[in-house]
Nucleic acid binder design. Sequence first.
DNA 1: GATCAGGCTCTAA
DNA 2: ATTAGAGCCTGAT
Length: 106
Amino acid sequence: MMNDTNELQRQILEVIALIPFGKVATYGQIAKLAGLPKHARLVGTVLKNLDEGSQLPWHRVINSQGKVSTINLDENGENRQLKLLKNEGVLLENHKIKLKDYQWIF
DNA sequence: GATCAGGCTCTAA
DNA sequence: ATTAGAGCCTGAT
C-alpha cells in the first residue's frame, strides 16, 4: 500500500479528532489506531507542525508515561496543554496523568 | 544519499 | 517507581 506523506498525516489527524472530551490517548496509541504501528514519533512531529488555529484536540495526546511532552507556555507561564486538560476534568497526580483512569479506550 | 535529531516506546536494571 | 539504552521511522540538513 502506497502512503503519501500527507496521507499519513491526514490519517493521524483523523484519529486524534476522535479522542473524546475528558479522555487522553498516547502517541503510540494514535499511531496504532491510524494503522501505523511504529510511528509514535511521527505523531509528535505532526502535532508540532500543527498551528494553533487548529480545532483538533491536540492537548489530549500525551506520552505513554502519562506526561505531557511539550513546554508550550501561555502568557501567564502556564502550560497550555495541562490547562486545557484540567478544564476537561483530567487531573494530575504528582505531575502525571493516570492513564488507568483517563486513557481513551477505543 | 548519508547523517542527525525528534512533543516516542519498550525493556531491563 | 525511575531511568538509561536500544529500536523505529520520518523529516530536515
